[in-house]
Design a protein around this nucleic acid. Structure first.
Length: 294
DNA sequence: TAAATCAATCTTC
DNA sequence: GAAGATTGATTTA
């Protein structure tokens, strides 16, 4: 198999190109969050003016850098876990507009039978393509039954991302076909198209245990989070929180199956297959989306 | 009090 | 058997 050259289409998400700067800012923040870095020092770090950085953040996340910074703190993450809170409290806390509709991406999921899984993708044809997303470059994989995989990588790591993903179903046939994946990309990363009347079709390819864990993830609404142990409870194996972590790590459809909404019981972001920085970015972005909801 | 250490627990390869 | 995107208890500085 030859890893594909990355072929970039036009930037379908206007804010997609902002991610590189955002990523570096988040990295900086998480490095020395202890002494609350100022807007000025952050801007200097990434070679922007304070005003420019402010504008960029607002465009990308709908939040000012300061509010965004708050949204990714341990303290705030802890609140996402607290199931006693009404859903909209996140938006209130961030000091933004009042209550409104709570959107989320609606999906219908279908699990492959254990038999199908054992063939490790044998007989399956998977179309894939790279697309710009608000969280870096997204590698999307689809079958005729729906979305099967979504991964992120930074520019230059396309080969690694492809190897990672295709290694999960080594016997499948892979075809680069952006015309097949582009509609998914457009749909997934454009929130105005997250509607319930035509749910996104998703196929879950994994072991029985993994599929149960992923289904539990799908039930977590946007702007909320669950602890690994809570998910373990939900699927009926209360002692299996560690195994749950492993299963979540194996989730092939990141973002759509919201593995970023799984946190340690303390609210700590314990891990993320595509990098903790990206997990922070996605959580902060979600907070911003909620806050701008009218 | 926070950080480090340890054992218990479950799934996968 | 070994290795995890965990947790809760215990110990240490």
């Amino acid at each position: 198999m030859n890893a594909p050259a990355a072929i970039l289409e036009k930037d379908i998400t206007p804010q997609g190109g902002d991610y590189e700067v955002i990523r570096r800012v988040i990295e900086k923040i998480s490095l020395d969050y202890r002494d609350q870095p100022s807007l000025e020092s952050l801007a200097e770090e990434v070679g922007e003016t304070p005003g420019g950085l402010q504008k960029l953040f607002t465009r990308w996340a709908g939040l000012s850098p300061k509010t965004f910074l708050q949204a990714v703190t341990l303290d705030h993450a802890r609140k996402l876990l607290d199931s006693g809170l009404p859903l909209l409290d996140t938006a209130y806390e961030l000091g933004m507009s009042g209550p409104g509709r709570l959107h989320d991406l609606f999906v219908t999921h279908e699990a492959m039978s254990p038999g199908d899984y054992k063939t490790r993708g044998g007989g399956l044809t998977i179309s894939y393509g790279y697309h710009i997303s608000p969280f870096g470059l997204a590698l999307i994989m689809v079958t005729d039954r729906g979305l099967a995989g979504l991964s992120f990588n930074d520019p230059g790591d396309e080969r690694a991302a492809f190897a990672d993903m295709s290694g999960r179903w080594p016997n499948a046939t892979y075809v680069e076909d952006m015309s097949a994946t582009a509609p998914y990309a457009a749909r997934i990363f454009d929130r105005s198209r997250w509607c319930s009347d035509q749910p996104l079709r998703v196929v879950l390819i994994g072991t029985d245990f993994q599929v149960r864990v992923w289904q539990a993830l799908l039930k977590i609404p946007m702007g909320r989070a669950r602890a690994y142990s809570e998910i373990a409870n939900e699927i009926g194996s209360p002692a299996a929180s560690r195994a749950v972590g492993a299963a979540i790590g194996a989730n092939p459809i990141s973002f759509v199956v919201p593995c970023h909404r799984a946190l340690g019981k303390s609210g700590a972001l314990t891990g993320y297959h595509w990098g903790l920085t990206r997990k922070r970015a996605i959580l902060g972005w979600e907070a911003g989306q909620l806050a701008t909801d009218r």
